[in-house]
Design a protein around this nucleic acid. Structure first.
Lengths: 211, 211
DNA sequence: TTTTTTCTACTGGTTTTTAGGTATTTTTCG
DNA sequence: CGAAAAATACCTAAAAACCAGTAGAAAAAA
């Protein structure tokens, strides 16, 4: 029940997104759009000059990380409401931004309704996620379920060589080891990754950014 | 020099981006925006009904890969101009879309000027990249020098199943084919990728964002 | 200094892949 | 329609990977 409109700014490195949001929000009765910025530095200096109530903030920015920026803003201007509007779906990012004081997290494919709902919730002091984000938060994210196996030095080294298409024979020669030893490491790698063969092994290692 | 406006559609999974583009383009004299779609299926069925001159296409879509969609569109409607508007900066993706018939590739943080310039160029039959994309293309990133091989439908399908760790036997059963046939496809895949075994195959396919 | 982990190497056997082909049928496209 | 591309299937044989164990030596951790 506030009589004054929320003085709102958008921070996103894509001019197209800024335009889109301006368009989507210009008919909202409780929102007054007062600016759009493409990087962290610009919004920080703007905050020195003007009062801002609500910031729609992207995670991916050219100069600073959106998570860090959120923390910086909240530290300096406690009363500003920060809503994250991002494409990033990593659980860790969502959690971190909320810890950094954000009042919500929406994916960019959220509907206008969701955005409205989250703004309303944030104004009341709550925290609000878009539907998909709730899902991300609820399931303990596959990446964390299949714990990345702890590999020994040797195993990492041999995994690399396997990925280069080398046979146990060739790897043995390269490392001055018996090919039978390499076979053992191979076996252990398959076991640790819980896969049946190298095809799956390499896929899994790739998904866990091991290369 | 055309008297009629370009009948233009936007395909992007983010409603916000669609809105933004609509806004940015609505004052363009040679463009008539006739639709916005959030997935591949919708635009394909729309194309059945209406004449479209220009498609602004995102790579990341919920149902299909934008690269494949581009190829599909160009195959069926040769005269449609497809401009890619994406956030993905991988060289392989840019190269692949151009090979698939796109007339240009812009990052989403391109300016309106760049977009205008690319549309003009595309209408003349040329190919146009935004500034940053040109940079991406100019540095030949070591392991992507090798042109991404053109795979047939079957080959893609079998590559997927190999990546899931399935044996020729199992794949044969799944597709109701002789395992010997799968072996042939396997052999062809290795040849096309110029690799010696599946380990290298999966690595290569991963580097080329085929999954 | 124990204890545990890692690295090494082996036996023996099975399954799968890879490397050369060839060849027919089916689809697609000009 | 005719040609080219794709998909199908086969042969032979070698090479490599995978499975299920065991086990001693070296290195690291408790």
């Amino acid at each position: 029940m506030q009589q004054n409109k929320l003085r709102t700014v958008i921070v996103d490195d894509h001019p197209i997104v800024i335009e889109g949001l301006k368009n989507l929000l210009k008919n909202e009765s409780n929102i007054e759009l007062i600016g759009g910025f493409q990087n962290g530095a610009d919004i920080m200096s703007y905050l020195e000059l003007e009062r801002v109530d609500l910031i729609l903030l992207d995670i991916t920015l050219p100069d600073v990380n959106g998570m860090d920026l959120c923390l910086k803003i909240k530290k300096k201007y406690r009363s500003v409401i920060v809503l994250i509007l991002s494409n990033r779906t990593e659980r860790s990012i969502v959690v971190q931004t909320i810890q950094n004081g954000a009042s919500g997290y929406l994916l960019k494919n959220s509907s206008l309704d969701e955005l409205r709902r989250c703004i309303a919730e944030a104004v009341k002091g709550g925290i609000c996620y878009s539907k998909e984000v709730t899902e991300i938060l609820s399931r303990p994210s596959r990446n964390e379920l299949l714990a990345a196996p702890r590999l020994t030095k040797r195993e990492k080294q041999i995994l690399e060589l396997i990925a280069q298409g080398k046979t146990s024979q060739a790897i043995g020669e390269e490392l001055f080891l018996s090919p039978l030893t390499i076979d053992t490491h191979r076996k252990n790698l398959l076991q640790k990754f819980q896969v049946k063969n190298v095809a799956e092994l390499i896929m899994s290692a790739n998904q866990q950014n091991l290369f």
